[in-house]
């Protein structure tokens, strides 16, 4: 894919207009998202935080084209999002590794769907990302032979390797230990600045959101709505224990807890 050609800095990669999503569940109709209007800018790292059940995963599914809105529109550039596509890769909340493939083949899965690469380039790239997540020595293992955290790291490598234009990540670091997590924050920021990606990251961890996001969007539940948007102007690379970061995180936490519980 290489670098993208449209350089207009402030152009929107993803635009949501008045998006509402309802589910017909076993316990009646649930409004997962209500009237969401949001813009993800080209080359922006957007972090979404909010309490459990406020529709964060649903939002990613909509952006990915895996689900359809009940009301409102979602555009990628100037095209409406209608179906899943290689340009919007999702890293799911549960690692969705394929049990019939080994670790390397799992990472190669997305790469093999990119026609303009040779097989040698694909393997090289897969190994590069596996090393990045610290699993270079596990490429022959099957997913069931790995720990939960390792599986999540493979899933991370699998979603980074094809270098998609937009990366949608659903709590990618939740099963990791603090050390690996902080190291991956650094790596992800590196990849983000180097490759000029657009990333939407969902997380429960407010510090993580502030550490990684250019903006942090706070959702409120029942039904899922945008409560507040925070601009994080801190220079990159950011360190998790930077005091400025900590005070911003406190601000977001304050806003989160001040929301009247329902």
């Amino acid at each position: 894919m290489g670098l993208r050609s449209e350089p207009t800095a402030a152009s929107a990669a993803l635009t949501l207009r008045h998006v509402t999503k309802r589910f017909d569940g076993a316990s009646g109709q649930v409004t997962a998202l209500e009237d969401i209007t949001l813009e993800v800018r080209e080359g922006e790292f957007l972090a979404i935080v909010g309490p459990s059940g406020c529709g964060k995963s649903t939002l990613l599914s909509l952006l990915a084209g895996l689900e359809h809105t009940n009301e409102g529109t979602i555009n990628l550039g100037d095209q409406p999002v209608e179906a899943p596509g290689r340009d919007r890769l999702v890293m799911f909340q549960q690692d969705a590794l394929f049990p019939w493939l080994n670790v390397l083949e799992n990472v190669l899965f997305g790469l093999r769907l990119k026609p303009d690469l040779t097989e040698a380039e694909r393997i090289e790239s897969a190994r590069y990302y596996l090393n990045l997540v610290g699993l270079g020595d596990k490429e022959r293992a099957r997913p069931h032979e790995l720990s939960g955290g390792m599986r999540q790291r493979v899933a991370l490598a699998r979603s980074l390797a094809p270098n998609p234009r937009v990366l949608l990540m659903d709590e990618p670091f939740s099963a990791l230990d603090a050390l690996t997590r902080e190291q991956l924050y650094g790596d992800l920021q590196g990849i983000f600045t180097k490759r000029k990606k657009t990333i939407v990251l969902v997380t429960h961890n407010i510090r993580e959101a502030v550490c990684l996001g250019d903006r942090v969007v706070l959702f409120s539940p029942n039904p899922g709505k945008v409560q507040q948007v925070f601009d994080i102007g801190l220079p990159r690379p950011r360190r998790l224990n930077d005091p400025a970061l900590a005070s911003l995180a406190a601000e977001v936490t304050e806003a989160l807890t001040s929301h009247p519980a329902k």
Partner: peptide, 25 residues
């Protein structure tokens, strides 16, 4: 469905989806 969703966002569809994901699964 999670396998299908993961494969689809990586660009797998129709025959590829059948032969590489649905059938092995």
């Amino acid at each position: 469905p999670l396998y299908l969703r993961a494969a689809q966002t990586m660009g797998s569809k129709s025959w590829h989806l059948w032969s590489r994901v649905i059938f092995p699964a």
